[in-house]
Design a protein around this nucleic acid. Sequence first.
DNA 1: ATTTCACTTGACATGATTTGTCAAATATAA
DNA 2: TTATATTTGACAAATCATGTCAAGTGAAAT
Lengths: 109, 109
Amino acid sequence: MSSEIIHMVTVGQIIRAKRESLGLLLRHVASYLDIDQAILSKIERNERKPTKDNIIKLAEILNLDKEDLLVQFISERIAYEIADEECASKVLKVAEEKVKYLKSNLVKK
Amino acid sequence: MSSEIIHMVTVGQIIRAKRESLGLLLRHVASYLDIDQAILSKIERNERKPTKDNIIKLAEILNLDKEDLLVQFISERIAYEIADEECASKVLKVAEEKVKYLKSNLVKK
DNA sequence: ATTTCACTTGACATGATTTGTCAAATATAA
DNA sequence: TTATATTTGACAAATCATGTCAAGTGAAAT
């Protein structure tokens, strides 16, 4: 058993890797997303956050699983949101209960 | 075993109940928080979201457990954020892994 | 070495959201 | 009615999100 550093793969990294493996250019993909290539460049380097729409279109054009990518995206956002809280783990547990309640009652936002 | 409706207690409800039980007025508590009483009124009725600072000061003046109240507050925010996602539960699980990674590496925001 | 191409960078614009103020309206009780 | 507590909605200011644009960088081809 060797000790290794586990890397957290970011959505940006996933996107860039897949885009390059498909031989697509920033401007091609950005055009599909209807945004400037500068933004996509920043998204891939975690300098800007994608919108949900960006994620959906990225999954389409890069042939990635849409739900997987969304899960990565949203969980990444939440993780950064609470990572500096002592009680982060407890927060997630309580959040799960609240989500169950909200879903079971179809409460409107 | 009777079937009951489980209610989600909101931070606003917790605060209002405690404030009233202590016989404190909106303007007294709001003054301590350094905000207008109109805002506090809205916070208690879930019409506005408190800031983190609001929560901390509320715990102080209302003699509530600071960490508990923070957990309720943040988890409530997250729950509303993702409740409309199909994959909400998966998101929380993945978020927990990411949080562990972020904490273990003390990554700066 | 110059040109070309993909990408990166930072200044800026604009609109949405957050966070608050204020005063009038309402409700409750003396 | 009067006084007090709360609620409401219009508004303002600050902050954040999202995007444009053009100049800059780096690497490969000629």
